[in-house]
Design a protein around this nucleic acid. Structure first.
Lengths: 369, 369
DNA sequence: CTGAAAGCGCTAACAG
DNA sequence: CTGTTAGCGCTTTCAG
């Protein structure tokens, strides 16, 4: 039953608890037949050791954790799979922990480090502004992966700073790195592509400005592109996710496109800061009787698998998921072994042109200035 | 730092460990200002209690676990969200645990029960055949949700039996329930709908027969429909997921449709045992130059959100996700409080007709018998 | 309201 | 190779 302990097993086998423990942990100092006998009893009894007790006692364990905020985001699926594989190959256990919306990822991390004697952590999703003091508390290496350039805020002064690798080590001796594509640049490139196709009224579906995440960076890239090409940035062409609705979701993209198109029927292109949003937007646009890309071009971001299965196939900014995942784990282990210093690693993003974008509809009456 | 313990806090506050513990656990027997003072120090120090130690000592905790096999399956997302909410409303913590492909869900459950003093478990995804002895070992109530009618196998005799509620209680005094749609019936209905549209050559994209999961049930429904309508079941119209590739995935659906269409170019409809597969199939069909539904009809299963966003919008068997989730938690709690007996609960599935299905192309030369 | 003390189940020296 | 023993960090009686 459930409250069988290692002691019961020991008694039943006529050995001491330590011998059972040795059998359980593949310890070399045990006679093979003793071990076999013990394992047999364990199997019969259905005994399962209590992990709380094990981890409490153990001084260390070869494990890292993946803390994921927004696990339904298909963009993370591949990353998780690759990272788990890589860690496994290095003889490490991976703990995959879903961080709820209302939870703070760093707090969760702290608890987990203690509980499971973690050696390293990867954050996927979530904020990219954190309290410096809280960050200081984490005493294992950690990496923010695909979260943008993480920034710290001083609780007292409220001062925000984008700490470079040097400052990060010097002042705070924290050990963390960021790996991400250059969100501002890539977004800018996406919008520039639309501009190059002749689009002038370009909308954006993004996250609210209140939450400091990649959405902000991508919005910045959007504005930059418009500005550099002499296009004005209109309030009504910017749709921000409402509170209460999941940001990176199809319904949100759907709402966004509807709202945008109602606010400005002359919009001819829309940049969605994720592919999932783009899918939602496509549906709305289609239902409003507009053709993609003949009437309206849609461009996404992330490069999830679905993008190439959707109709029309989505033009998107493709993040090199597998490479990012590999780099993340490689660097984390380097940091764990003190072989690498914290750094910001920028990965290249690729504009993948497929079927959801095309030239701006010519001669649209009101698109003339 | 990381190895601050409750004792350090006690020392720093000039109180005993038990007082700190009381502050930590909202125990009533503590003077408000003492508590406040302690909490302040805890906050400043950034102290985080070690969960291993807490759970080791605690005799019980108000928590249940959701064990999910195949967490990338979007079908589970909604279920997870609803269940977490409901458990939360009842004052319970939910532990969401991803079960890897190579892990056995019941083994994971056993470990977790001990470690976290769970009061109940929900299994999402995974096999529906389990070793009766292993099942017996779980001594908290548990529910298989949307896994089909769970079946037990006797390790010695190899005998498989679909245990009804009574037998389940009587012989084994285990406490588990199933909640699911009638997969055979629903699949049969889906295929019958295709037949009613005049389709005769109907393919299926399903899981391998080697793995005892819902795939088998849905395949059975497919065969039943063909049989009852006097259509023969052709080997070449059945595509089973290959080993090594994720079963419920778009690439798998893509391969499936290609293979099927090459094997029999006259196929006019295909039943996919999940919407994700259907999306993959649609892509392949489109790329092969066939129109949906004019040339080929596609029907899915699950009723995920994406289905109504895809082009064409997917006809599908919709599982009442929210209701299933609610029922699951409600019944689990009833079982935990001994208010409900184990049972098989069949939920109604609905055939949702959208745009991916249509009448069989008329007068196709080779479709005549 | 607070403190002292007894373990929760296990691992890891240490001594045979 | 095996047994004895001392805690891991915390909660929880039980006294005050």
């Amino acid at each position: 039953m459930s409250d069988t302990t290692i002691r019961d097993i020991a008694k039943q086998c006529g050995v001491s608890v330590s011998t059972v423990s040795r059998a359980l942990n593949n310890h070399p100092d045990i006679r093979p037949d003793t071990k076999e006998m013990i394992m047999k009893v364990i199997k019969e009894t259905g005994f399962v050791p209590n992990d709380s007790a094990r981890y409490l006692k153990r001084s260390e364990a070869n494990s890292i954790a993946l803390l994921v905020k927004g696990i339904t985001n298909p963009f993370f699926s591949t990353m998780i799979r690759v990272m788990e594989d890589m860690a496994h190959n290095r003889g490490f256990m991976t703990i995959l922990r879903h961080v709820r919306d209302e939870e703070d990822e760093v707090t969760v991390a702290q608890a987990l480090i203690k509980e499971r004697r973690l050696k390293g952590i990867v954050f996927l999703g979530g904020k990219f502004v954190h309290d410096q003091n809280v960050l200081d508390q984490l005493d294992v290496p950690f990496i923010f992966s695909t979260i943008g350039n993480v920034v710290s805020v001083d609780e007292n002064t409220g001062e925000i700073q984008e700490i470079g690798p040097e400052g990060r080590q010097g002042r705070h001796k924290i050990r963390y790195a960021n790996i991400a594509v250059d969100d501002v640049e890539a977004s800018c490139r996406a919008v520039e592509y639309l501009i190059s196709l002749g689009h002038k009224k370009i909308g954006i579906i993004t996250e609210g400005l209140d939450c400091p995440s990649v959405g902000q960076l991508r919005l910045r890239g959007y504005k930059k592109a418009l500005e550099e090409h002499g296009l004005s940035c209109e309030e009504r062409l910017i749709f921000e996710a409402r509170e209460g609705i999941e940001h990176y979701s199809m319904p949100n993209g759907y709402n966004g496109a509807r709202t945008l198109l109602q606010a400005d029927p002359d919009m001819t292109a829309v940049f969605c800061i994720s592919d999932v949003l783009a899918v939602g937007a496509c549906r709305a646009i289609t239902e409003m009787g507009r053709a993609i890309p003949a009437d309206i071009s849609v461009i996404g971001y992330d490069g999830i698998e679905l993008g190439s299965y959707y109709n029309p196939r989505l033009t998107t900014i493709q993040q090199p998921v597998e490479q990012i995942a590999e780099k993340t784990i490689a660097m984390l282990f380097d940091m764990m072994e003190n072989k690498a210093k914290p750094q910001n690693l920028i990965m290249p993003a690729e504009l993948v042109i497929r079927d959801s974008t095309g030239p701006a509809p010519a001669g649209h009456p009101s698109s003339q200035d």
